[in-house]
Amino acid sequence: MSWVFWVLAAITIAGGMATVLVRRLVHAALGAAAAFAGLALLYLSLDAQFAGFAQLMVYVGAVTILILFAILMTQSGELNQPEGLKKAVFSPGSFWGLLLAALVFAVLGFAVNNSQAALAVATGASASAEPTATVASIGQALVGNYVLPLEIVALILTAALIGAVVIALHEKGEAQ
C-alpha cells in the first residue's frame, strides 16, 4: 500500500470522527464534508474517476450544502451561547450505541482479515493497474444493460424532489 492511501484513509476517518464527536453542528458538517471529500479521493485512487467526481459533486457540492442549510434553519441559537454549549450532545444511552458500533467494527474487521476472497484476489493478476472505466464505456453501459435502473433512478429523483418540497411546505392554517 502506498502512502497516498494511508493519507486519504486518515483524512476520511478523521473527518468522520470529527463529525461524531464535535460539539458545534456547523463544525460537524464540515467534518462530514472532509470525510466525503476523502472518500472521493479514495475512489480516484481506485481508478474510478467518474465515481470520484460524482461523489465530489453530489456529496461535497450538494449534500453538505443541504445539511448546512438544515442546520442553520433549525438552529435556535442556543448552541452559540456559552451555557448552550454545556448541554449534552449525546443521548443518555450513548454508551450502548458506542458499544454496538465497536462490536460491528470488530465483526467486520474479523471477517475482512479472515476472508479467503480478499487474499485470493490480491495474489491474482487482476490487482495490476489498468483503468478500465472510461466515460464512453460507462455511458454505453448506462443506456445498454442498465437502462431500466437508470429510468427508475430518474423516477426516484423526481419523486424525492416533489416529496421534499411537499413535506417542507407550510401547512394550511399554520401561522406564517
Binding site: 460491528v104 467486520l108 474487521g109 480478499a118 484476489v121
Partner: peptide, 21 residues
C-alpha cells in the same frame, strides 16, 4: 483490497456510532 475494506468498515462503524449516539 483488505485495506480498503477495513477503512470502509471503520467508516461504517463511525457512522453507526454517530447515528446511534
Amino acid at each position: 483490497l483488505s485495506a480498503y475494506l477495513l477503512v470502509a468498515a471503520l467508516l461504517f462503524a463511525v457512522g453507526l456510532a454517530g447515528a446511534l449516539t
